[in-house]
Design a protein around this nucleic acid. Structure first.
Lengths: 355, 355
DNA sequence: TTGTATGCGTTATCAG
DNA sequence: CTGATAACGCATACAA
């Protein structure tokens, strides 16, 4: 009857993008009816609704989220930006985010900044263009200011930081209580009888490393031990750097009897160096790391480490996003969720049992 | 002049979704001109083009990909489905995919099936609804048939499998030459003087485990050794399972002098069991695994393993997708890309040097 | 309960 | 080289 240019191709052979209009025409009803039936609207006859659903199945109708998002002005997409997806930490957080998002009907667009702020800026633009409903991000190492996040705010897109964020900025964020983690690890070493506890720390412009270091200092103070700057070594947290720091520490006139590193890879480097020098762990030097990576349970002795609650962090980040979404006019809100770390004590620091 | 209902809000305070229409109005030109300037069309005056670009920057115009995709019928999104994002292998492949995709202007939607075919089915529908330009997938462990992929084919969306795929099905895929990998690892053990080489293998309905096993058998044959069924153990590739298999093997009347496992975690379990029994690796039993996970370099001794070229696999998968995209009518094509594995020999199998 | 009409932001077709 | 206009698929205000 209708002389539309789509003369009802009986054979849905190749690409068959069947739309609501197709369903409407087939059933002889209006698109509105179709829309209502599919979206479970209340004003719809049960009979027609069933008919629509049945036909939709038959023609295997697939809703077009793009069109819906365009119309409604809000999509079911969220963007996640991480420095890199490899490595247990970020992969695990992304896992948490994706799992929570998926349950809530959101899809996740994943972006990697490659630890580069310029890439990060591009990622943000891409996500805004994709009309995401929100952005969850852990900033890159060389992100030093918030300029590029202004655009996100202007677009009114909820922004949630997780783990890494710039100090002094008031934003929505989910973080670990890194200070408490540093405190726990260091206190544990001190309780094991160690008195010269060294610290291998990361770049201090990042909240996480700064706080872990502060926790280290807190513990020393609590035990009445004056901090010794020669026992605090800057590191980029790689295996090599950890080994180098350990070597430097051993070369001191008064070397440490324990080391707390702000990362597991670095502490593994330290462990390897100690073993190559014939020193015993934990008897000669006790070790504790941070992140509770898989390698901590493969190393010998197994490495004591602070767990970062990665899954919970991902869940919490997504949850915070949804809260911002329903709160609406909260472009300027500053909600912070702080997760408590958990120290996993393993052989690398258990002195009392082994001496 | 124009009495549009958007009276040029001077203060772009909160949500400022500036569109092409806004730019057009501001400059007093048509939307067509704006569109052409932004998309670098040839029919456009250099002067006007500059003016448009400048204004776009000033008002920080952000293109709406959704609208463009809706109009053009093709988005710049691709979907990636993996069993889980944690673990080095999939994270690394996703890294490769995202890096390549990003360079080509595509964004990546990540989905996890959780090793469940039902979830996988939902993921596929979600991605189709999101109007992705293509889908890259590594199937879940309990995916036994291709029913749910039919829908993808009907929609004419390019589909690329990577690593895991169902045997006997002719699809576009990027895989590792697992058979060659199994052959290399086993041959290496035989060359080290081992004569009773055992194999810990995974579920045989998956191409990867089946092929690794076949490579193992190939190597035995090449060396004129008859396969011994008691030396081939089924496993779910976990740490515990690896240890259990090793224990079973040691209990044999004639235990093996080497083990090749189809996964690194399993071989680590075997290593730990051997050490707990006071046996020496590789002198008493030589070991080789598969995947070249990070743990292989943390274990002591370090574990020999087959590298899966994860980054290349990701790149190749995306590249194959783009080829399918430009080839258009290739819903039925069956392009296969096979990557060559690389054996990393480490201490766990180096007998000749250590005896 | 159902239908009609309109617009979301963009691109493509056609005419100037 | 530029402009008016129609679509893409869906949701909703409004009318029936």
């Amino acid at each position: 009857m209708a002389t539309r240019r789509t003369p009802s191709k009986e054979t849905s052979a190749s690409g068959s993008p069947v739309s609501m209009a197709d369903l409407a025409r087939e059933l002889g009803v209006s698109m509105t009816t179709i829309s209502r039936a599919l979206s479970d609207h209340h004003s719809i006859g049960p009979a027609t609704k069933q008919a629509v659903l049945k036909l939709a199945k038959k023609l295997n109708y697939q809703p077009n989220h793009l069109a819906a998002a365009l119309r409604k002005g809000k999509s079911k997409l969220i963007g996640v930006i991480v420095p890199y997806i490899e490595g247990r930490f970020f992969a695990s957080v992304v896992h948490g985010i994706e799992t929570a998002a998926s349950k809530a009907g959101f899809s996740v667009i994943i972006c990697q900044s490659g630890e580069d702020v310029e890439h990060e800026r591009k990622n943000l633009e891409t996500l805004l263009s994709a009309q995401v409903a929100g952005i969850l991000i852990s900033v890159s190492l060389n992100t030093l200011d918030f300029k590029h996040f202004e655009k996100v705010r202007k677009h009114g897109v909820p922004l949630v930081f997780f783990d890494r964020l710039l100090e002094g900025d008031h934003v929505n964020a989910v973080v670990l209580n890194d200070r408490e983690g540093g405190y726990q690890a260091t206190s544990h070493l001190l309780e094991q009888g160690c008195r010269r506890v060294a610290h291998i720390c990361g770049t201090q412009h990042l909240n996480i490393y700064k706080n872990r270091r502060q926790g280290y200092l807190d513990a020393l103070q609590r035990y009445g031990i004056a901090p010794d700057d020669s026992l605090i070594r800057d590191s980029n947290m790689t295996l090599e750097s950890g080994a180098q720091c350990m070597a430097d520490l051993l070369a001191l006139p008064n070397p440490p009897d324990a080391v707390f590193a702000a990362g597991d890879t670095a502490i593994l480097g330290a462990l390897q160096l100690l073993k190559s020098r014939g020193l015993r762990v934990p008897q000669d030097v006790a070790l504790a790391g941070f992140s509770n990576e898989a390698l901590t349970q493969v190393a010998e002795p197994m490495l004591t480490s602070v767990d970062q609650r990665t899954e919970e962090m991902g869940q919490a980040a997504f949850r915070l996003f949804t809260e911002l979404l329903s709160a609406e006019g909260t472009a300027f809100s500053q909600r912070q969720v702080v997760l408590q770390p958990q120290l996993f004590v393993r052989a690398s620091s258990l002195r009392k049992d082994t001496i």
